[in-house]
Structure formats: structure tokens, C-alpha cells
């Protein structure tokens, strides 16, 4: 399952730490980077590669909000639901996104284009309300601005 490229990148990570287990978070991120999510088979192979049991790897995988253990959309929208965004209109934006995409929080659109997830404060509070798509942070959001941003993603 794991490609040579994935294996090489994971092995390079193990050299940064005195114990292979420490490379687990990065290994999971490498797989997700290549595939968009982390399938069971990949968990098993990461475990083999690092000399750990699959449950050990999965116990770390399931701890992290950003590690997706289910197939997700092509683009992940993380919408900040925290205080500064909450007081500046989070609920309006969430409802707008849900309506626009025709999904609830935690779901993926029927065409597999977007998955919508809640996020912790994105450190963008001075430009709240904010969201993040595939690593890019967008602030000062309004429903109109959200529509513009969504249009940039295929």
C-alpha cells in the first residue's frame, strides 16, 4: 500500500527522534498528504515500518483532530467556532456554509468536493470570523466572501 516515496519520507522522519514511535504523528501526516486520509491498511504498514503494533499507531492517530481516519472530500474546510469568531458571527457563517454545501458539520458534499469540520481558534481572531481550507487561512469572512473563496476550489 505505502508507496516508496511515502516510505522514504517516513524513514527520514525517524532520524529526527531517538525512538521510532515519535515519528508516528509525522508518518500519519505524510500518508494523509499523499492520499487525503489515513486508511486502515496504511496504519498497519506504518506500524510495521516503525516496529510498533497497529493499535499503538491508531491510538495516536485517533487523538488528533487533523488526522482523518475516514475518507474525506478533496478539500477540508475547518471553520473556527471559538470565542472571537463566535461573537463576530460564527453561527451565521456556519449556517451559510451548511446551506451552500448542503451538508451538516462533519459531513462531505455529495460530489466529494468539500468536507466541513469545526476547528479550534485559528489565531486569526483579529480578523474574525475565520476558516481554513487545505492549510490556507481566511479571515474577515462574510457570506459573500465565503462564496468567493469556495469558488477558488475545484
Amino acid at each position: 500500500m505505502l508507496t516508496d516515496r511515502e516510505r522514504q519520507r517516513i524513514e527520514a522522519e525517524t532520524r529526527l527522534y531517538p525512538h521510532p514511535r515519535a515519528a508516528v504523528p509525522e508518518a500519519l501526516k505524510i500518508v494523509q498528504d499523499h492520499r487525503g486520509w489515513v486508511p486502515d491498511e496504511a496504519v498497519k504498514e506504518i506500524a510495521e515500518l516503525l516496529g510498533l503494533s497497529p493499535t499503538t499507531v491508531d491510538s495516536t492517530a485517533t487523538f488528533y483532530n487533523m488526522i482523518l481516519r475516514e475518507r474525506a472530500g478533496r478539500h477540508i474546510i475547518f471553520i473556527c467556532d471559538n470565542v472571537s469568531c463566535w461573537v463576530t458571527g460564527y453561527e451565521v457563517l456556519r449556517d451559510h456554509l451548511c446551506r451552500r454545501l448542503d451538508i451538516a458539520l462533519g459531513e462531505t458534499t455529495a460530489d466529494g468536493r468539500f468536507t466541513l469540520l469545526p476547528a479550534a481558534c485559528l489565531g486569526e481572531c483579529d480578523r474574525a470570523p475565520a476558516m481554513m481550507i487545505d492549510g490556507e487561512i481566511y479571515g474577515n469572512l462574510t457570506p459573500e466572501r465565503i462564496d468567493e473563496v469556495l469558488a477558488q476550489y475545484d
Binding site: 470565542v83 472571537s84 479550534a120 481558534c121 489565531g123 481572531c125 483579529d126
Partner: peptide, 11 residues
């Protein structure tokens, strides 16, 4: 790790 709600200073 700066994930405290409303924090943004370390960024």
C-alpha cells in the same frame, strides 16, 4: 501549540 481560544500572539 497556541490553541487557546482568542490567543494569537505567538503566531
Amino acid at each position: 501549540d497556541e490553541m487557546e481560544p482568542g490567543a494569537m500572539k505567538d503566531r
